[in-house]
Amino acid sequence: MRISSIVIIGATSGIAQGVARLYAERGWKIFLVARNADALQAMASDLKSRGASDVGVLIADLCDTTRHGEIVSTASRFSGNIDVVLIAHGVLKNQQEIDNDPNAMLKVFDVNAVSTISLMQRFASALEPQKSGTVAVISSVAGERGRRTLYTYGATKAAVSHFAAGLRARYLPLGINILNIKPGPVDTPMMAGRTQALIAPVSAVARDIVRAIDSRKGVIYTPWFWRHIMTIIKMIPERIFVKINF
């Protein structure tokens, strides 16, 4: 029997680690891409110990889009047929953290939006010949509406969401699913130091993601209740919304 494989971009992020462990328990082949060599090393050992049949790693700065072609080809060589690609890298910045620094603001776009859509497009194209597989990308509930405290981050996630919707319409008929994952706040290192209600454990979010990949969903909210919260938030009329401070 052929061994299934997953490629994880931004592999050392909290959510990506949770998802990777679930695929390790299934005995999959796993290819990890991230910036930090020590972290990749520790994570690769962990996944092998938990049952992954093979783990490959590639150290890369994802903002360097000129290397994206190499990332895709190295991942393909390691994996053979790629069953799942998970794009999980990103930075979280509140508006006040980047307010006085336009470059920092654009950097959030580079990391969260530009590099992400570049990799989504490249991997979708790479999967085309095999006529199967899933490209899953982590956006956010923050991409649903521009909030005064988080609009740059929200806009990057909105860009990814729109891109994913169009990409899915194009590639689904070719056998390739595009999954847009919209988590609420998750208890990861990215959230460290931020107090937040309704914070979800990584393990629950990871389970939701794997289930959505298995059932070839197009969009998921995780935990599930965010779908309903966002439905209400999107319905708030603009003149009232601008007066809400969040």
């Binding site: 909290g14 520790a42 994570m43 050992s45 962990d46 110990s49 938990r50 290192p189």
Partner: peptide, 17 residues
């Protein structure tokens, strides 16, 4: 969060984590 299993030998039962 530092909860990675760094090696696990199924034959000897030695685990480092």
């Amino acid at each position: 969060r530092c909860d990675r299993i760094l090696s696990f030998d199924h034959d000897t039962g030695i685990v480092r984590a």
